[in-house]
Write a protein that binds this DNA or RNA. Sequence first.
DNA 1: AAATGATTTAACCGAATGGTCAAAATTAAA
DNA 2: TTTAATTTTGACCATTCGGTTAAATCATTT
Lengths: 212, 212
Amino acid sequence: MTENDKLTEEKIFESATEIFIEKGMDGARMKDIADHAGINKALLHYYYRTKDHLFNAVFEKMAGLMFKKFAPVFDERLSFEDKIKFFFREHITFLQQNPRLPAFILYELSRHPERIKKLIQNLDVEKLWETLEKQHEKDLKKYNITKENIPQFMTSVAAMSVFPFLAKPIISGVMEKIGYNFDEYLEQRKSYAPEFILKAISKTNRDELTLT
Amino acid sequence: MTENDKLTEEKIFESATEIFIEKGMDGARMKDIADHAGINKALLHYYYRTKDHLFNAVFEKMAGLMFKKFAPVFDERLSFEDKIKFFFREHITFLQQNPRLPAFILYELSRHPERIKKLIQNLDVEKLWETLEKQHEKDLKKYNITKENIPQFMTSVAAMSVFPFLAKPIISGVMEKIGYNFDEYLEQRKSYAPEFILKAISKTNRDELTLT
DNA sequence: AAATGATTTAACCGAATGGTCAAAATTAAA
DNA sequence: TTTAATTTTGACCATTCGGTTAAATCATTT
């Protein structure tokens, strides 16, 4: 199947995805999307009535894709520790292939927070917690992860994986100055992050044990 | 000094800051900024020639402000552990007062990565590292922070503090569903984050010590 | 108070933008 | 092969946007 065989609607959607992710809703131009898809501007409005419609289609698809990447963690039949390792390896690899996705999603959400509702309306947090608790009761106790501090824990995990992509220009800008390489940094992070997290939540009394 | 006494240039700059942070470069309208400042649109161009000039002024000021907040850590005469605690308390408090700043800065940087150069041109990373090494030689050894893994460490610290603000709509959206409060979450984080970090970098062998 | 320079405004401009529409081209149905 | 339906296009439209200009207002100096 060549580029020409693709259905027009697909071509439009893919072009829109690329342009929107690169320039954002406000920076994207319908003309650019049409040109990128190699079609007439009016065709965009034939398939997707307005810029808003087209944007929403792209945004919901991409946001769904990104959040779905968190899900397998709950399904995989792995030990708690391996799930953490599995998550960082898979998630960072996914983001390496879509490095601008997090900035796009989070920025558009911060501009229009209402959008979050549709994305999480089918998410039953209580149920998810119960499942996790059944599956890893011992680990949760071992690591002292309670219902009360799970938001702290979850956001720390997400932060460790997503932040490098959100701050990529800064990080690679600074690293360039000292001859480091951003891609190597990302590869390292796939193992650094899970070790970091697991150590951070271990019950070990830090003060007693760090006298070298 | 009332609102009317403020110099026009100040009023413009402050209004521009607010509008740009809220809507971004592409979403902001010169008309909105003028209205917000209570002046004629042409005055914007009288003081700042173009939208780009105005934006750059705002962006550089705000980016500088945000990055400066990382600096005191190096100066304060505190133990290594207290510096970490100090940092999170101060930085999160600062971001609580400017919650949209990180998304603004990081998004505009990801759209125009060239901008980073001007921001870090005067930053001597090598020197900074040497200073840190002299000041905390023992701690760096104790926590196994080397020149090689310092990017991993630094980005992890930054991530723990900044990410909650970048992902605020998601976090507070999810937390709302289970009756949690985002502001409480942030207060907690001021102490959760430094403990998390310090435990994560301690040399303790995790496997030996987590049998409860 | 006249003159000078700085500040502010209303009116205007050209380019770009999202969107429409009727006609043309293509495809599917009869 | 005709007819009907669908897809694609070029030309067009109203509005918005960043920016300009000349005149008006205000403050300062002489």
